[in-house]
Design a binder for these strands. Structure first.
Length: 364
DNA sequence: GACACGTGGCG
DNA sequence: TCGCCAAGTGT
């Protein structure tokens, strides 16, 4: 018979020993700089380690300190974030770093109250940075931790509910070693990433298999309990390649608003055009786009044929996009958020993935 | 609590 | 192929 206390002690010690033997050598594990830990945690939100690594290296080469990031132009930060997704993370991070510079004398706060008040810093990031950089005994409950704990302790609560997170945080506070808080939190996540994976967990090599109730009950594949996400809603859009379809000549781009989806990023001019692919004829679509462009820019353009279809799935929206080419009939001075650029100049503008693909596909 | 908010990898 | 999902936060 094992007591609840023994089950927790076994978990802590087995997990820590395993982590110290098998943890991956990751760039942000080679530093204790709170700023660098912080950057890594923001990039890692909803994003895979392998995706983050090159972004992390480039970002810290360009912005090695709180001051460097605080002083940078926002466009440059966004450009270095291009392709990583969830772009408000970049803006919030820079805003938070500016607050650290202005309010905390450039020193990342080492307590929950101050650090968690910064933009983009929620309960997970608070616990992760404070424990890893400052060894504070704070829980850092992410998806990995929820999965590991729900299996080990057989917690059959919906992990989308706030009360479940509170339950997990309480468990962590009971277990977290005050002399190894960062290692413990990272060990939990590392186990979730390497062994206690969402599908086909590697229970036979798991350091805590002996006491894992989910495994002992044969329920590990059913945990954690989580409601299914809704399917992205479809949207039908028509986009314009105005100007050149070849590499050397300029084409028309515009900047999105500072709020909402893909805030402040650049794109090809485009518009939504109804609920189905058969709303308008091809000629009707080109006419609608030409009017849209003239209304927004004053440019007079003439249809030059169909270019390509493109699809892109965001978390909550699925874009079906038809791209048409246009020639300029009459020039007009552009409003501020429009530009003529050549392909080489794209390095100065941050584009979301779907437009990188469309424009890139035009090149060869 | 529910929804907005990106992207790429994997079985 | 395609649904699921990966170190979440803001509103």
């Amino acid at each position: 018979m094992t007591t609840a206390l023994e089950k927790k002690q076994y978990f802590v010690h087995s997990l820590l020993a395993w982590f110290r033997a098998y943890q991956r050598d990751l760039p942000w594990r080679r530093t204790k700089d709170p700023y660098r830990i912080w950057v890594s945690e923001i990039m890692l939100q909803q994003t895979r380690v392998d995706t983050v690594i090159p972004y992390y290296e480039r970002f810290l080469e360009r912005f090695p300190t709180v001051e460097a990031l605080a002083d940078a132009p926002e466009e440059e930060v966004l450009k270095l974030w291009e392709g990583l997704g969830y772009y408000s993370r970049a803006r919030n991070l820079q805003s938070a770093v500016r607050e650290v510079r202005d309010t905390y004398n450039g020193v990342v706060p080492d307590d929950r109250q101050h650090f968690s008040s910064l933009k983009g810093v929620g309960p997970y990031t608070t616990g992760a940075v404070l424990s890893i950089a400052y060894n504070r005994p704070e829980p850092a409950v992410d998806g990995n931790v929820m999965r590991v704990l729900s299996r080990y302790f057989l917690i059959e609560e919906d992990i989308m509910k706030g009360s479940t997170r509170a339950h997990m945080e309480h468990l962590i506070r009971e277990m977290i070693p005050h002399d190894a808080a960062g290692d413990f939190n990272q060990a939990l996540m590392e186990l979730g990433a390497l062994i206690c994976t969402p599908k086909s967990p590697q229970c036979l090599v798991c350091p805590v298999m002996e006491q894992c109730t989910g495994r002992l009950e044969g329920k590990e594949e059913q945990l954690p309990i989580k409601k299914k996400a809704k399917a992205p809603r479809p949207e039908y859009r028509i986009a314009a390649m105005v100007g050149s379809v070849e590499g050397e000549k300029p084409f028309l781009i515009r900047q999105r608003s500072g709020q909402g989806l893909l805030a402040n990023m650049w794109e090809l001019p485009h518009m939504e055009y109804g609920k189905g692919m058969e709303e308008l004829s091809e000629a009707g679509e080109q006419e609608a786009l030409a009017r849209h462009i003239q209304a927004e820019t004053g440019l007079i353009v003439k249809p030059h044929g169909f270019l390509m279809n493109a699809e892109h799935t965001f978390s909550h929206i699925h874009w079906n996009m038809k791209v048409y080419a246009f020639e300029i009939v009459q020039q007009h001075p552009l409003p501020d958020h429009y530009r003529w650029i050549r392909k080489e100049e794209m390095q100065h503008f941050a584009f979301p993935n779907i437009f990188l693909r469309i424009i890139g596909a035009r090149q060869s």
